[in-house]
Amino acid sequence: MIRPLRALFAVAAVAAASPGVASAQDKSAVQIIAPTDKTITPSGTWSIGARAGDFVFIGGMRGTDRVTGKMVEGDEARVRRMFDNMLAAAEAAGASRHDAVRLTVFVTDVAKYRPVVNKVQKDIWGDGPYPPRTVLQVPALDQGDIAEIDGTFYAPVKK
Rank of each mutant, 00 (worst) to 15 (best):
A100I: 01
F57M: 10
G74V: 03
R133W: 00
G69Y: 08
R133V: 01
D127T: 07
T36N: 10
V30E: 12
D54M: 05
L8I: 05
S18G: 02
V67W: 02
D150S: 13
R114I: 04
G69K: 06
Q25D: 12
V138P: 09
G128I: 05
G63M: 08
V101P: 00
T152S: 10
D54T: 11
Q137W: 06
M82T: 15
V105C: 07
G63L: 01
V110H: 04
V138S: 02
F57T: 03
I58L: 13
E76W: 04
G53N: 15
I48V: 11
G128R: 05
D37N: 12
V117Q: 00
S47G: 13
G53D: 14
A111E: 05
K159F: 11
T39P: 03
P129N: 09
N118S: 11
I124F: 12
D26P: 03
R114N: 10
P131T: 02
A90F: 00
A155V: 08
Y130P: 00
K70R: 14
R51L: 08
M86I: 10
G74D: 04
M86R: 01
I149A: 04
T39C: 11
E76H: 07
I48A: 12
R97T: 08
A88L: 00
T64A: 13
V11I: 15
K122Y: 00
T152D: 05
P139R: 07
R133T: 01
R133D: 01
L5S: 04
A10I: 10
E91T: 12
V107N: 07
T134E: 15
K112H: 11
G60H: 10
D123M: 02
D145S: 15
N118F: 06
